[in-house]
Computed example of a mutant assay.
Amino acid sequence: MEPNNDEITLKELLGKAKEWYNYLLSQWKIIVLAGIVGAALGLTYSFIKKPVYTATLTYALEDGKTSGGGLGSLASSFGLDFGGSTGGAFSGANLMELFKSRAMVEQTLLSPIVYKGATISLAEMYIQDRNWRKNWNEKAKFKNLQFLPNADRSKFTRVQDSILGTIYGDLSKNSLSVEQKDKKVAIGTITMKATNELFAQLFTNALTETVTDFYITTKSKRAKENLDILVKQTDSIRVELNGAITGVAVANDNTFGLNPALNVKRVPSARRQVDVQANTAILTEIVKQTELAKVTLRKEMPLIQVIDQPILPLPKEKFGKAKGILLGGILAGFMAGFGLIFRRIFRQII
């Protein structure tokens, strides 16, 4: 059987590699020149590229779980629910998603801060830092856009919604990260990266405060509602008790010096006395439940405890000059080499 002429032997393969090597070696001036240009571009990029600052905040999460026990069963007789186990909805990974949610981030962006001697929102600081308003002044629908501190989000226009969405997309994808290193330990870390050092610090602190307020309000909502109901019931029963006590006094005055044989005249006083005893017993129990409800509400807060906050100066990552020269030169040299190879192949095909 004759050997297949289409097969390439190792010797021929090495010969082809040597041929390409000699060709690239003959074009060394072009490759070196490309490397020099690439190094210059890399050096220029190192001057243009802004350093990236990293703000890190560490927090501890209290699960806030209360067994309830006798309190829960006793409160249920009054139609109340202390909701001691509501913390699960925002625990662990769910809480991390809450930090990265659009609602929390946008609410944080509308938080007031003092920047360059003026009180503005974090969204306005973001816009100023990127010089967006220079281009907006040329467009009528963007020219008068404002993102005031604590503005009513529900009244924003479609354009404002779009801009906030753009800022949120950039922060969530490129800047903001929330992680929990160990599932067994309820300690999380919020990391914010930005080219503006102050923005990174202020945003991280404001986001934590926003989420904490929302978290506390949500988790303690049922406990607070129960406390409000008990307080109203306590006031109502106290009014009834005071009225019953007054009624007993009035009835006793009416029967003072009464003939003992006329017992029917003493009935109003006896009825009022029963009302006093009943209201006293009810008031005692409700006051007890009110105090227990206050304890339950206190156990719900605080839920997020900040351990470490970002402190200026923040750690920064800078694209170094040596790194720019080295990477630029190597990348440009490789691109020049591949370009020469493709050009020769194309000429051979033609």
Rank of each mutant, 00 (worst) to 15 (best):
A206H: 05
K183P: 03
T208R: 10
I190M: 12
K183I: 07
Y215K: 13
G165K: 04
S177G: 04
K183G: 13
D213H: 14
T166G: 03
G188S: 13
K181N: 11
V185S: 02
A206Y: 02
V185R: 01
K183Q: 09
A206S: 15
N174P: 01
T204D: 06
K181E: 12
D182Y: 07
L176H: 01
N174M: 02
G169K: 10
S177N: 13
E197H: 07
A186N: 13
E179I: 07
K184T: 12
K193H: 08
T195G: 09
T166H: 03
I190E: 05
N174W: 00
T208E: 14
M192R: 05
E179M: 07
T166C: 00
T208V: 14
G165F: 00
K181H: 05
L171K: 06
G188E: 03
V178K: 03
T195Q: 13
T189H: 03
L202A: 14
T189A: 06
L171G: 03
N196E: 10
A200I: 09
N196W: 04
G188W: 04
A200L: 10
M192N: 10
Y215R: 15
E197G: 08
F203R: 09
I187R: 01
T208F: 14
G169W: 00
A186Q: 12
D182C: 03
K183E: 09
T166F: 02
Q180L: 06
N196G: 05
K184N: 13
S172R: 12
K173F: 01
M192D: 06
L207I: 09
L202Y: 10
L198R: 11
Q201P: 05
K173G: 00
V178P: 03
E209Q: 15
I187H: 01
M192K: 04
A206I: 04
Y168H: 07
G165C: 00
V178H: 02
A186E: 11
D170E: 11
A194L: 08
M192Q: 08
I167A: 03
M192A: 09
E197W: 07
Q180F: 00
F214M: 13
A194N: 15
D213R: 15
N174D: 13
D170M: 04
T191E: 10
V178N: 03
T191K: 12
T204A: 14
N205Y: 06
T212R: 15
N174H: 06
N196A: 10
I167K: 02
I167D: 04
S172D: 09
V211D: 11
Q201V: 10
E197K: 11
K183L: 11
S175A: 14
E179P: 00
V211C: 12
A194T: 06
L207W: 04
K173C: 00
S175Y: 02
E179N: 12
S172Q: 12
K193F: 02
A186G: 02
L171R: 05
N205M: 14
S177L: 06
K181F: 07
Q201A: 12
T210Y: 07
V211K: 09
L202V: 10
F214T: 15
I190D: 06
